[in-house]
Amino acid sequence: MPEALLAIDGLDVFHGDFQALYGIAAEVAPGEMVAVIGANGAGKTTLLRAVAGLLGRRAAAIRWKGRPIGGMRADRVAALGIALVPEGRLLFPSLSIEENLLIGGRMGRRGPWDLAAVYRLFPILRERRGFAPAQLSGGQQQMAAIGRALMANPELILIDEISLGLAPVAIRQLYEVLPGIVGEGMAAVIVEQDTTRALAVTRRFYCLQEGRVALAGASGSVTREAIGRAYFGV
């Protein structure tokens, strides 16, 4: 495997007194697509938020191109080229769709993504650009949230619950464009409830169970039974 873009080692994260992650170890190589799966409450969101700089303290637990970034302020992490599409999308409600995209691009990082490129990827967003996020369907909101992250021209995009709550047609649409946007200059970590789908589009996966990595490996060769055990700990 090429040198890791992101290397996590011994990551513990707490929500107050409650420990949500225990000694997580994981890696993402440049241009790679990795799945993080696991049951509700396993700690997937906590993991992504820690990488994005919203949680966690210990610097050495998360390395970006070899440099310790754990506990770094989220805006600094973003400037390094790590973008999070948060669970629940969390668009800015008082900004129009286009403004949501523009604010995603405010750091001015170089790369292929700009307003025109996002509109080419998701033409419906161009039509809805003056709308408030609440006026869009869930699938369209997810497109806007992904577009907002792409606007930053990240080297790593973290997508939390890419398909949760979306109509099947919207899910299919998102998964169709996904392989096209990842690769070359950008790696991706996707958190997904639908493990079959997640394993189909990624090269490697990590399965979390109660805050620990219960299983990790190549997405193509893992068996259903192994996933089932890692998921539920039975």
């Binding site: 700089g53 989220a74 805006d75 973003a78 948060p86 800015f92 409600p93 405010r106």
Partner: peptide, 19 residues
């Protein structure tokens, strides 16, 4: 935009590189 975004959701605004 930065003001409105920060007013809306401070943590997500940080993700946009806003301190």
């Amino acid at each position: 935009r930065a003001f409105r975004a920060t007013s809306d959701r401070q943590d997500v605004a940080q993700l946009m590189g806003l301190n």
